[in-house]
Amino acid sequence: MSSATGSAAGSTSEIATTVNGAAYRGSVANRTTLAAYLRDELGLKGTKVSCELQVCGVCSVLVDGRPVSSCTYLAADIDGRTVETVEGLATGERMHELQRAFVRNFALQCGFCTPGFLMMSKALLERNPDPTEDEIREYLDGNICRCTGYQPIIAAVLEAAAELRGVGVD
């Protein structure tokens, strides 16, 4: 039940990182998780935490384009790396195709898992711009949603993929 062990005081690391395009530099306690750094140090509370065991996918963010569970990834390890979170998905006022497709398809209800699903889906579409339904299920199987029954999420990712490829939506 205890979230951390070892000495609270003392060991810290200096980090320089880029989060959603903005550069940050500073020191973090070695025990600080990336999720805690994003939420508490940077105020980026869009990233949520749930299972704390890397099995629910809620806290997924991208580090150098690769999805990681920020609940168990140490903030010290983002030194020299680039982090993307849900807050960085939209371009100015324009929401990302995935965000719009999730809203259109009712692919969320309570929304707590949604930032993780969006970041994981972004990673999927960057690797595979035209995934099949089975490939989506395979890639997103590590993300839990307790509200929707998943089918609307699959539909949203398929739709966003089509839009990003420029095939449009019917």
Binding site: R39, L44, K45, G46, T47, K48, V49, T85, V86, E87, L89, A90, M95, Q99, F102, V103, R104, F106, L108, G111, F112, T114, P115, L118
Partner: peptide
């Protein structure tokens, strides 16, 4: 009508506030 839910817009941008925030 299946109108678009406004709360979903806040939730996909990460702006929606939950108690934990």
């Amino acid at each position: 009508r299946s109108v678009q839910r406004r709360d979903l817009l806040e939730k996909v941008t990460g702006a929606a506030v939950y108690a934990v925030d």
